Simulated scan of single mutants.
Amino acid sequence: MQLHNKLSKPELIARLNAETFKRKTVSFYRYVNIHNPEEFRDKLYLDWSSLNCLGRIYVAHEGINAQMSIPEQNVSAFCDLLDNSKELQNMPLKWAIEDDGHSFYKLVIRVRPKIVADGLSEDVFDTTNVGNHLTPIEFHELAQNPDVFVVDMRNSYESEVGHFKNAICPNVSTFREEVEAVVDMLADKKDEKILLYCTGGVRCEKASAWLKHHGFKDVNQLHGGIIAYFREIHQAGEKSAFIGKNFVFDNRLGERITPDVLANCHQCGKPCDNHTNCAYQPCHDLIIQCDECKAKYNGCCSDICHEHQQKGTSHHRFHELVGKVNKRKAVNR
């Protein structure tokens, strides 16, 4: 009984490229008690492998967080499998806005302590005391009010390429830093209306509970996140208040929401919002890189990485020569 992938990355990509059918990318999450995450994980792997599903899924005692790619012809069967599980019944699904069918090339299901690595000690606040869930239309209408505070609960590399107009976008790189920064930034706004949003909604569950724990009275969150927002706003014929790209955690690294390009290439500074991972594998840092710089540096994030890529410097030797922090300082941002 095979419960994990045994093929190499080149083999998996070749198999994906050879497919003659279309795929659909979907994300979903749920906070729900899972008594035995390991057993639950193994059953999911067997069921979803049988439908040729791909993706990255985290399972924990507190629930599930999934981003997946499903063969179009198997979508109905996949939904039936969800509804046949008491933990996953009536799951709200968020389908990708842009989809090239290559969001994932293998199925990975991992058991984790939490479904989102938030760095928060949950014994000090009530994680079930969350904010008011707003539909995309409700969020859209309230966000137009200049007296409310719209807060991006994502990391800065996500908000850099796209965000709601006039949103507060803290310059942070982890969720723990994010929630602490928001509490500090809005310390004198605890009686005001706060609107939180993130990619699919899962981070706002913890963030809203954290803010309420710290005395914020009117905390609201975008149910279904940016993905649900754009679909519903588009169907309603409204102009999106979210501009730019929505960063996604799969091989696509972004979905175009509006034509606005908000960011700049980290190397030359020209307008650009295309994320890429440094082609030098010991680094693999995430940057924004234009096509010209991609060609100039052969997909690397800096002169240092490009040089060591050319030399074929090993992972161990690279980190002896230059630490991550110093390497990042060499990138012209």
Rank of each mutant, 00 (worst) to 15 (best):
M1K: 12
P10C: 00
P10A: 01
A14T: 05
L16I: 13
N17K: 11
T25G: 14
V26H: 02
F28Q: 01
F28G: 03
Y31H: 06
V32P: 11
V32M: 12
I34K: 08
I34Q: 05
H35C: 01
N36P: 00
N36F: 11
P37D: 13
F40C: 07
W48C: 07
S49Q: 06
S50H: 04
S50V: 01
V59M: 11
A60T: 08
A60R: 09
E62N: 04
V75F: 03
V75P: 04
S76E: 08
F78K: 03
F78W: 09
F78G: 03
S85E: 05
L93T: 00
K94H: 11
E98W: 01
D99Y: 02
Y105W: 05
Y105C: 01
V108S: 12
V108M: 04
R110Q: 13
K114N: 13
K114R: 09
K114H: 15
I115C: 04
I115R: 12
A117T: 06
G119E: 12
F125H: 10
D126P: 09
V130R: 11
H133Y: 15
H133F: 15
L134A: 04
T135E: 06
T135A: 02
P136G: 06
E138R: 06
E141S: 10
M153C: 15
M153Q: 14
R154M: 04
S156F: 12
S156H: 15
Y157M: 03
S159D: 08
V161T: 14
I168L: 15
T174I: 10
R176Y: 15
R176I: 03
V182C: 12
D184G: 06
D184C: 06
M185V: 13
A187C: 12
D188H: 12
D188N: 09
K189E: 03
K189Y: 11
E192K: 15
L195G: 06
T199Q: 14
T199K: 12
T199E: 11
K206I: 04
A207L: 07
Q221H: 14
L222T: 08
F230E: 15
E232G: 03
I243G: 07
G244V: 01
N246Y: 02
F247G: 12
N251L: 08
R252S: 14
R252W: 03
R252M: 07
E255G: 06
D260R: 05
D260T: 02
V261M: 10
L262E: 07
H266G: 02
C268V: 03
G269Y: 09
K270V: 14
P271R: 04
C293L: 08
C293Q: 02
C300H: 07
D303Y: 14
D303F: 11
E307G: 05
K311T: 09
R317A: 14
F318M: 08
H319Y: 08
K329W: 10
A330G: 10
V331H: 09
V331S: 00
